[in-house]
């Protein structure tokens, strides 16, 4: 393919050698790609906007192992992500989720759009934590792990008056099918909110108003869900939780 041009969000950047940076990008046309930005750490480098969470129009050269960034034109910097600690920590978590849930060179334009919409929500929305819950649901669905929410994932019957969320069972379970461990009890209202979020458009997410209890339940369920599919607990969560621990709203 050689040279190609695409939009990309930088998920992660790591120093490489004296002046280079190794980037993990999520591109519109190629999906997740690892690329080197040569000389980008030199003052006056012409490769601008290759910081994490930035959306840029890039020209890349496909290499055998790593691609190389030839040109970059930043499109959206999502500036509030750099100026608010809580939003920045949330964006780190979003980037980690996308990196963890996708394979290299497996493009999904819908996932790309969700990522960009997600960064915008985290940058400007009034409630970054609620936005994360929506993004956990949407990204895992796009990556092929959509939780069953409309019935019991095990017996197929009604979720009933005392539903629970069990990642290993594939979603919501009724009281009779609830496993001994690894399940989070959900109030019926929380289940309704989960269903709403699973079907919502990014712009509609924040019409939802949750109680602290519902927030905490939803967070436990969905963090459990993505951790189950990533096969590890996302690393950014510790910092995010530490930041919001003393906040009046629910945990993440």
């Amino acid at each position: 393919m050689g040279l190609y041009r695409t939009e990309a969000v930088v998920l992660r950047a790591r120093e490489l050698g004296e002046t280079d940076r190794l980037l993990v990008l999520y591109t519109r046309s190629e999906g997740k790609v690892r690329a080197v930005a040569k000389g980008v750490r030199r003052p006056g480098s012409r490769l601008a906007g290759l910081e994490p969470f930035t959306l840029s129009e890039l020209q890349l050269f496909q290499g055998r192992e790593l691609d190389r960034v030839i040109q970059s034109q930043p499109r959206r910097g999502f500036r509030p992500l750099r100026e608010d600690l809580g939003r920045l920590a949330a964006a780190s978590y979003l980037a980690e989720l996308v990196e963890g849930l996708t394979a290299e060179r497996d493009p999904s334009p819908a996932l790309f759009q969700t990522l960009v919409a997600g960064m915008a929500l985290l940058a400007q929305g009034p409630d970054p934590l609620l936005a994360l819950r929506f993004l956990e649901l949407r990204l895992s669905a796009l990556a092929g792990f959509q939780p069953v929410l409309d019935r019991c994932a095990r017996c197929g019957g009604e979720a009933g008056p005392r539903p629970a969320f069990a990642p290993a069972e594939g979603g919501v379970v009724c009281a009779g099918c609830r496993p001994v461990s690894g399940a989070v009890s959900l109030a019926p209202g929380t289940l309704a909110s989960l269903r709403f979020l699973a079907a919502a458009q990014p712009g509609r997410v924040e019409v939802l108003r949750l109680t602290a209890g519902a927030n905490a339940e939803m967070a436990r369920a969905l963090v459990g869900w993505v951790s189950y599919h990533l096969e590890r607990r996302p690393r950014s969560l510790d910092f995010l939780e530490a930041l919001y621990l003393d906040a009046p709203r629910g945990l993440c």
Partner: peptide
């Protein structure tokens, strides 16, 4: 902007 930097190549956050 870095000294010797090119305005044209700076990203929006830096310029702002």
């Amino acid at each position: 902007l870095p000294v010797g930097g090119d305005l044209d190549y700076a990203d929006q956050v830096t310029l702002a």
